[in-house]
Amino acid sequence: MFGLANPQRFMAFTRPLVPLLWAAAGVLLALGAWFSFTAPEDYQQGDTVRIMFVHVPAATLGLGAYAALGVSSFFALVFRHALADAAARAAALPGAAFTLLALITGSLWGKPMWGTWWVWDARLTSVFILFLFYLGYMALRAAIDDEARAARSAAVLGLVGLINLPIVRFSVDWWNTLHQRASLIRADGPSIDGAFLPALLTMMAAYGALFLALWITGIRTEVDRRRVVAARARAAAGA
Protein backbone atom coordinates (compact mmCIF):
# COMPACT_ATOMS: atom_id res chain seq x y z
CA MET A 1 0.00 0.00 0.00
CA PHE A 2 2.75 2.46 0.94
CA GLY A 3 4.58 1.55 -2.26
CA LEU A 4 1.60 2.95 -4.17
CA ALA A 5 2.17 6.30 -2.46
CA ASN A 6 4.74 6.89 -5.16
CA PRO A 7 2.85 8.64 -8.00
CA GLN A 8 4.70 6.73 -10.73
CA ARG A 9 3.92 3.36 -9.15
CA PHE A 10 0.33 4.43 -8.50
CA MET A 11 -0.19 5.43 -12.14
CA ALA A 12 1.31 2.16 -13.39
CA PHE A 13 -0.74 0.02 -10.98
CA THR A 14 -4.07 1.74 -11.62
CA ARG A 15 -3.78 2.00 -15.42
CA PRO A 16 -5.27 -1.49 -16.04
CA LEU A 17 -7.45 -1.28 -12.93
CA VAL A 18 -9.56 1.70 -14.01
CA PRO A 19 -11.31 0.09 -17.00
CA LEU A 20 -12.05 -3.00 -14.91
CA LEU A 21 -13.70 -0.85 -12.25
CA TRP A 22 -15.79 1.02 -14.81
CA ALA A 23 -16.86 -2.27 -16.37
CA ALA A 24 -17.72 -3.76 -12.98
CA ALA A 25 -19.72 -0.67 -12.06
CA GLY A 26 -21.68 -0.84 -15.31
CA VAL A 27 -22.47 -4.55 -14.96
CA LEU A 28 -23.43 -4.24 -11.29
CA LEU A 29 -25.61 -1.18 -11.93
CA ALA A 30 -27.47 -3.01 -14.70
CA LEU A 31 -27.89 -6.10 -12.54
CA GLY A 32 -28.92 -4.03 -9.53
CA ALA A 33 -31.50 -2.13 -11.59
CA TRP A 34 -32.98 -5.43 -12.77
CA PHE A 35 -33.15 -6.75 -9.20
CA SER A 36 -34.69 -3.44 -8.07
CA PHE A 37 -37.50 -3.49 -10.61
CA THR A 38 -38.26 -7.19 -10.17
CA ALA A 39 -38.28 -7.09 -6.35
CA PRO A 40 -41.74 -7.41 -4.81
CA GLU A 41 -43.68 -4.45 -3.46
CA ASP A 42 -43.48 -3.79 0.26
CA TYR A 43 -46.71 -4.46 2.14
CA GLN A 44 -46.65 -0.95 3.63
CA GLN A 45 -44.56 1.15 1.26
CA GLY A 46 -45.68 -0.39 -2.02
CA ASP A 47 -43.49 0.57 -5.00
CA THR A 48 -41.97 3.42 -2.97
CA VAL A 49 -39.65 0.87 -1.38
CA ARG A 50 -37.63 0.85 -4.62
CA ILE A 51 -36.27 4.30 -3.74
CA MET A 52 -34.35 2.53 -0.96
CA PHE A 53 -32.19 0.76 -3.55
CA VAL A 54 -30.85 4.16 -4.65
CA HIS A 55 -31.02 6.05 -1.36
CA VAL A 56 -29.22 3.65 0.97
CA PRO A 57 -26.16 3.05 -1.28
CA ALA A 58 -25.91 6.78 -2.03
CA ALA A 59 -25.99 7.67 1.66
CA THR A 60 -23.43 4.97 2.47
CA LEU A 61 -21.03 6.13 -0.25
CA GLY A 62 -21.52 9.75 0.79
CA LEU A 63 -20.14 8.82 4.19
CA GLY A 64 -17.46 6.54 2.78
CA ALA A 65 -16.23 9.14 0.31
CA TYR A 66 -15.85 11.72 3.06
CA ALA A 67 -13.93 9.22 5.17
CA ALA A 68 -11.58 8.78 2.20
CA LEU A 69 -11.32 12.56 1.86
CA GLY A 70 -10.61 13.03 5.56
CA VAL A 71 -7.98 10.29 5.83
CA SER A 72 -6.28 11.54 2.66
CA SER A 73 -6.34 15.07 4.08
CA PHE A 74 -4.60 13.81 7.21
CA PHE A 75 -1.71 12.29 5.22
CA ALA A 76 -1.54 15.37 3.00
CA LEU A 77 -1.41 17.75 5.97
CA VAL A 78 0.90 15.76 8.26
CA PHE A 79 3.26 14.22 5.70
CA ARG A 80 2.79 16.83 2.94
CA HIS A 81 2.24 14.06 0.42
CA ALA A 82 1.11 15.29 -2.99
CA LEU A 83 -0.68 12.05 -3.92
CA ALA A 84 -2.69 12.12 -0.70
CA ASP A 85 -3.76 15.67 -1.50
CA ALA A 86 -4.77 14.55 -5.00
CA ALA A 87 -6.78 11.70 -3.44
CA ALA A 88 -8.60 14.09 -1.11
CA ARG A 89 -9.40 16.47 -3.93
CA ALA A 90 -10.62 13.65 -6.19
CA ALA A 91 -13.00 12.31 -3.51
CA ALA A 92 -14.83 15.61 -3.00
CA LEU A 93 -16.97 15.85 -6.14
CA PRO A 94 -18.24 12.24 -6.29
CA GLY A 95 -18.82 12.31 -2.53
CA ALA A 96 -20.87 15.48 -2.83
CA ALA A 97 -22.86 13.95 -5.70
CA PHE A 98 -23.65 10.80 -3.70
CA THR A 99 -24.67 12.87 -0.66
CA LEU A 100 -26.92 15.12 -2.77
CA LEU A 101 -28.51 12.03 -4.33
CA ALA A 102 -29.14 10.66 -0.83
CA LEU A 103 -30.81 13.93 0.22
CA ILE A 104 -33.00 14.06 -2.90
CA THR A 105 -34.09 10.42 -2.79
CA GLY A 106 -34.67 10.67 0.95
CA SER A 107 -37.04 13.57 0.36
CA LEU A 108 -38.81 11.68 -2.44
CA TRP A 109 -39.31 8.76 -0.05
CA GLY A 110 -40.22 10.96 2.91
CA LYS A 111 -43.14 12.74 1.26
CA PRO A 112 -45.36 9.64 0.79
CA MET A 113 -44.09 7.88 3.92
CA TRP A 114 -43.83 10.74 6.44
CA GLY A 115 -46.14 13.25 4.78
CA THR A 116 -43.36 15.83 4.41
CA TRP A 117 -40.39 16.43 2.13
CA TRP A 118 -38.05 17.45 4.94
CA VAL A 119 -37.73 17.62 8.71
CA TRP A 120 -34.82 19.02 10.69
CA ASP A 121 -34.22 15.84 12.65
CA ALA A 122 -30.74 14.64 13.62
CA ARG A 123 -30.11 12.29 10.69
CA LEU A 124 -31.34 14.57 7.93
CA THR A 125 -29.66 17.63 9.39
CA SER A 126 -26.29 15.89 9.89
CA VAL A 127 -26.36 14.57 6.29
CA PHE A 128 -27.13 18.08 5.06
CA ILE A 129 -24.16 19.36 7.08
CA LEU A 130 -22.04 16.64 5.46
CA PHE A 131 -23.06 17.99 2.05
CA LEU A 132 -22.10 21.51 3.17
CA PHE A 133 -18.66 20.23 4.21
CA TYR A 134 -18.19 18.86 0.72
CA LEU A 135 -19.22 22.18 -0.83
CA GLY A 136 -17.02 24.10 1.61
CA TYR A 137 -14.02 21.91 0.81
CA MET A 138 -14.38 22.45 -2.94
CA ALA A 139 -15.13 26.16 -2.58
CA LEU A 140 -12.12 26.71 -0.32
CA ARG A 141 -9.77 25.06 -2.80
CA ALA A 142 -11.20 27.17 -5.63
CA ALA A 143 -11.06 30.42 -3.65
CA ILE A 144 -7.30 30.38 -2.90
CA ASP A 145 -5.00 30.98 -5.85
CA ASP A 146 -1.88 29.56 -4.21
CA GLU A 147 -2.27 25.80 -4.66
CA ALA A 148 -0.14 24.86 -1.64
CA ARG A 149 -2.10 27.16 0.68
CA ALA A 150 -5.39 25.95 -0.79
CA ALA A 151 -4.37 22.32 -0.16
CA ARG A 152 -3.41 22.99 3.48
CA SER A 153 -6.55 25.00 4.25
CA ALA A 154 -8.82 22.44 2.60
CA ALA A 155 -7.06 19.60 4.43
CA VAL A 156 -7.80 21.25 7.78
CA LEU A 157 -11.47 21.62 6.81
CA GLY A 158 -11.51 18.00 5.64
CA LEU A 159 -10.22 16.84 9.02
CA VAL A 160 -12.77 18.94 10.91
CA GLY A 161 -15.56 17.39 8.86
CA LEU A 162 -14.65 13.91 10.11
CA ILE A 163 -16.29 14.84 13.41
CA ASN A 164 -19.64 14.78 11.63
CA LEU A 165 -19.35 11.18 10.39
CA PRO A 166 -20.14 9.40 13.68
CA ILE A 167 -22.92 11.92 14.26
CA VAL A 168 -24.49 10.93 10.94
CA ARG A 169 -24.02 7.23 11.63
CA PHE A 170 -25.31 7.12 15.21
CA SER A 171 -27.76 10.03 15.19
CA VAL A 172 -30.75 7.69 15.02
CA ASP A 173 -29.47 5.85 18.10
CA TRP A 174 -28.48 8.90 20.15
CA TRP A 175 -31.65 10.94 19.58
CA ASN A 176 -35.31 10.39 18.84
CA THR A 177 -35.57 10.99 15.10
CA LEU A 178 -38.18 10.55 12.41
CA HIS A 179 -35.63 8.61 10.39
CA GLN A 180 -35.69 4.90 11.19
CA ARG A 181 -32.71 3.08 12.67
CA ALA A 182 -30.28 0.98 10.64
CA SER A 183 -31.93 -2.05 9.06
CA LEU A 184 -28.96 -3.57 7.20
CA ILE A 185 -25.84 -3.33 9.36
CA ARG A 186 -26.98 -4.38 12.83
CA ALA A 187 -25.46 -6.42 15.65
CA ASP A 188 -28.40 -8.85 15.51
CA GLY A 189 -28.34 -9.11 11.71
CA PRO A 190 -30.33 -7.32 8.99
CA SER A 191 -33.96 -6.57 9.82
CA ILE A 192 -34.83 -5.94 6.17
CA ASP A 193 -36.87 -8.61 4.39
CA GLY A 194 -34.73 -11.09 2.50
CA ALA A 195 -36.63 -10.42 -0.72
CA PHE A 196 -35.04 -6.96 -0.90
CA LEU A 197 -31.47 -7.97 -0.03
CA PRO A 198 -30.29 -9.02 -3.54
CA ALA A 199 -31.25 -5.65 -5.02
CA LEU A 200 -29.89 -3.62 -2.12
CA LEU A 201 -26.58 -5.46 -1.80
CA THR A 202 -26.00 -5.45 -5.56
CA MET A 203 -26.67 -1.72 -5.76
CA MET A 204 -24.32 -1.08 -2.84
CA ALA A 205 -21.60 -3.05 -4.62
CA ALA A 206 -22.33 -1.12 -7.82
CA TYR A 207 -22.06 2.24 -6.07
CA GLY A 208 -18.84 1.11 -4.40
CA ALA A 209 -17.29 0.13 -7.74
CA LEU A 210 -18.55 3.38 -9.28
CA PHE A 211 -16.99 5.48 -6.54
CA LEU A 212 -13.65 3.66 -6.84
CA ALA A 213 -13.72 4.17 -10.62
CA LEU A 214 -14.51 7.87 -10.22
CA TRP A 215 -12.02 8.35 -7.40
CA ILE A 216 -9.06 6.63 -9.05
CA THR A 217 -9.84 8.31 -12.38
CA GLY A 218 -9.93 11.64 -10.56
CA ILE A 219 -6.60 10.99 -8.84
CA ARG A 220 -4.97 10.01 -12.13
CA THR A 221 -6.35 13.12 -13.80
CA GLU A 222 -5.03 15.30 -10.98
CA VAL A 223 -1.59 13.70 -11.18
CA ASP A 224 -1.48 14.30 -14.93
CA ARG A 225 -2.61 17.90 -14.44
CA ARG A 226 0.15 18.57 -11.92
CA ARG A 227 2.72 17.03 -14.21
CA VAL A 228 1.62 19.35 -17.01
CA VAL A 229 1.76 22.37 -14.68
CA ALA A 230 5.23 21.38 -13.47
CA ALA A 231 6.46 20.86 -17.04
CA ARG A 232 5.16 24.28 -18.08
CA ALA A 233 6.84 25.88 -15.05
CA ARG A 234 10.17 24.26 -15.92
CA ALA A 235 9.82 25.36 -19.52
CA ALA A 236 9.04 28.94 -18.45
CA ALA A 237 11.99 28.96 -16.06
CA GLY A 238 14.31 27.66 -18.79
CA ALA A 239 13.06 30.30 -21.21
Rank of each mutant, 00 (worst) to 15 (best):
G136F: 03
P7H: 04
Q8S: 14
A102H: 06
H81K: 12
L21W: 02
F128L: 15
L162C: 11
G95K: 02
I216Q: 05
T60C: 01
L214A: 12
G238F: 13
A213I: 00
A205W: 03
T125V: 04
I167F: 08
I129E: 09
G26S: 08
S107W: 08
R80M: 07
F170I: 06
I104Q: 05
Y134K: 04
A213V: 03
Q180S: 11
A30S: 09
A91Y: 09
A182T: 07
I185L: 15
G115E: 11
P57H: 00
A84D: 04
V49L: 14
T60D: 08
L130T: 11
A195M: 10
G106P: 06
R9P: 02
D173L: 11
F35K: 05
A92T: 08
V27E: 04
F35W: 10
I185G: 01
P7R: 07
L212D: 01
W114F: 09
A150E: 00
R232W: 12
D42W: 06
M11Y: 00
I216N: 01
I104A: 13
D121S: 11
L214P: 00
V223D: 00
R50H: 08
S73Q: 06
L197C: 02
M203D: 07
L201T: 10
H55N: 09
D146L: 01
L214T: 10
F133V: 03
R227S: 13
D145T: 14
T105W: 07
G194Y: 05
L83S: 08
G161H: 01
G95H: 04
V160H: 05
G110I: 03
